[in-house]
């Protein structure tokens, strides 16, 4: 564990808490893409199946359980409890365009052709693009609430911090994993446009509004 990874994980945790809290407090999931949240639930489920086979640490187990539980809770709030507030007219990204390539790529490019390993690889590929329905929704409506922007910033920062962690681990432990690194870079790049808007608008007290 190094500082980049710890802050990355905490940023990830913060993002999840921000989103759950926002939905719960406002009793509404307006502006939130249920499809992205569904993809995240698939990501955590397929990646953390190793909870059943290997024990890494208490920290590792706890965080995995929290991520899985929170992603299911978020989906429950969006698709069941606050279903009436779900903005499905604007959540029109076709997730099969992300799911199918992630499956195919995981079958073709992986470290080991074994079920758990392929599921892990699939989750890494899917995670890198899982935010696209949410970003698509923001671009479609042309705006996002500040709290949604904070959520996106925390979630985007997490993988960016992991890149620093991977550089650190390569230097210190001579360890690197190309699949995770390439997917992590893609994931972070997808947020760049949003990061720019967040820093130039939201942090200056303005609403995140895209130019018409």
């Amino acid at each position: 564990m190094n500082i980049f990874r710890l802050i990355g994980d905490l940023s990830h945790l913060l993002a999840i808490i921000i989103l759950l809290r926002k939905i719960w407090k406002s009793r509404s999931c307006a502006g939130i893409s249920g499809k992205s949240q569904l993809l995240f639930a698939i990501v955590y489920t397929s990646r953390y199946l190793d909870l059943l086979t290997v024990y890494v640490s208490m920290y590792n187990t706890l965080m995995k359980l929290v991520f899985i539980a929170a992603s299911y809770a978020t989906c429950y709030l969006i698709y069941l409890k606050f279903k009436a507030t779900y903005d499905h007219n604007h959540d029109t990204f076709r997730i099969e365009f992300l799911l199918v390539p992630a499956v195919i790529l995981a079958l073709l490019i992986n470290h080991d052709f074994m079920a758990l390993e392929i599921l892990w690889t699939f989750s890494i590929y899917l995670e890198s693009v899982a935010i696209l329905p949410q970003l698509f929704m923001v671009s479609k409506t042309g705006e996002a609430e500040s709290i949604t922007s904070h959520y996106l910033f925390a979630l985007g920062s997490y993988r960016g911090l992991y890149i620093l962690n991977w550089i650190y681990r390569y230097a210190m432990e001579d360890h690197y994993d190309l699949i995770a690194i390439v997917a992590g870079v893609v994931q972070t790049v997808l947020y760049c446009d949003f990061f720019y808007l967040y820093i130039t608008k939201v942090l200056r007290g303005k609403k995140l509004q895209l130019p018409a």
């Binding site: 990830h12 590792n60 965080m63 080991d112 994993d177 995770a180």
Partner: peptide, 10 residues
Amino acid sequence: HSFRVQKDEL
């Protein structure tokens, strides 16, 4: 195997 080490990450 590099992936063995990777699995300690989230």
